[in-house]
Design a protein around this nucleic acid. Structure first.
Lengths: 237, 237
DNA sequence: GCAAAAGTGTTGTAACTACACCCATGT
DNA sequence: ACATGGGTGTAGTTACAACACTTTTGC
């Protein structure tokens, strides 16, 4: 009876969306996410993470990239699938299953412009989030957890920093993400022995006071060649 | 122009499926996956991982559990979302986006029965897979990678062993999954200091020859209480 | 000269690696 | 008695954690 019903189910009626948790980082604000203010119902005039329905002939990644471009004008430099949220009632209209991604952007890409589907676009520190549409709090929290975990075994933190950065920026990033103090000397020793940094002949431009630090850049080529050889990174502290 | 099109896209036409890579393990066969032989087109009479379309009012997890039950008669004791595969052309009929899960079953649950949607159900060692329908090879390979990674920081290997097992079974499991030899004494020391095993007053039933080993069981309660306190497990070798 | 941030070494401790022999059982 | 697999300890080495003072710059 119910067996027959299962084998010949009614036509599926649900929609597939992609959403993106876009992370940015500055020393001043700490880890932040990019939110848009929705123009249309449901949850009109509420903050939400950027996203939208997948088109019929685009891949999921292409859909995320397109939606980000449309809603925020942003181009990201790191994008990874996070989790698929599919509770039947997560959208009040009808069933929407959402494939969530998370993305990392460098501080110099922070300039955004509200697109046609968004009333406003803005960055929010992750510990000062406004109330959010749908289950987007859950999505953001999953993304934060994932990011926290991932930076301990993959050097993706660099994707949140400028191309040239002082060592202290990296340290502050880790302190902020891990939520506890790190000994500067131990941190520097461990990062240096990964041998993924290029020491530049420049010093950081001054921001207030203190001794300027040497600038470094991330050796992406070396990282990928090590990674492809199956090298394991340990960036836990 | 193209903007207008993007804002009012044609109705979405795709279907959402769930698929499961079910892992089992025995000392004899090593890590194995459960496959079904498809009854219907496309890829009729070819091997595939169990799965099917999500019903309108069930969660994704419920869908996986239902499909596994229907197609293989199996109940799993560990289930985790793996990745969502959404390439537009991964199904020759029309677009099907699949949320893939992976599951672990204990050896005593190996008995399966081909359900109504499957011609046959069988276990295959992961290094002797037959040719597979759709992109199921990719899904299985992702699942293997995930499992390999995960057993180094979460004690999920126990989900592949019987409730009572000799120490050597656990060791062989790790050797098989990691693909290299492990020093027995170092392994035992490290596992024992995690303090997640209960040493039983029984010895293993004899299978061929050799000294029978003491039996252990996994302390699931302790594991969850440690995990909830944020305790980190290190099971790398 | 003082405040603010960057730079730098050492020492004790804990964890990891490498390694070989004896024991209990079945045949 | 022999073959098979289970059980156990140590020593050298390496990585980790904890710790404070000096240097360079802006104001």
């Amino acid at each position: 009876m119910s067996k027959t019903f299962h084998n010949y189910p009614v036509e599926q009626s649900m929609k597939l969306a992609v959403d993106a948790v876009v992370f940015g980082y500055t020393k001043e604000t700490g880890l932040s996410v990019l939110l848009i203010k929705r123009k249309i119902a449901p949850f009109a005039h509420q903050w939400a993470i950027p996203g939208g329905f997948v088109h019929n002939n685009e891949s999921l990644e292409d859909g995320v990239v397109r939606e980000l471009q449309e809603e925020t004008g942003l181009t990201v430099n790191y994008l990874e699938q996070l989790y698929t949220f599919g509770n039947p009632d997560r959208d009040p209209r009808y069933r929407v299953v959402s494939v969530a991604y998370y993305a990392l952007v460098k501080p110099d890409s922070f300039v955004t412009s509200a697109g046609s589907d968004a009333e406003d676009v803005s960055w929010f520190a992750v510990n000062q989030l406004p109330s959010l549409a749908f289950d987007h709090v859950d999505i953001i929290n999953s993304a934060i957890q994932r990011l926290r975990g991932k930076i301990t075994y993959e050097p993706i933190g660099f994707e949140l920093l400028d191309a040239k950065f002082p060592f202290s920026d990296l340290e502050h990033l880790y302190v902020n993400l891990l939520g506890r103090e790190i000994d500067r000397r131990n941190f520097k020793r461990k990062i240096k022995q990964l041998d993924l940094l290029i020491e530049l002949d420049e010093t950081a431009p001054m921001s207030s006071a203190g001794r300027p630090g040497k600038l470094y850049s991330f050796n992406k080529e070396k990282y990928f060649s090590l990674k492809n050889r199956g090298f394991l990174f340990d960036m836990s502290f």
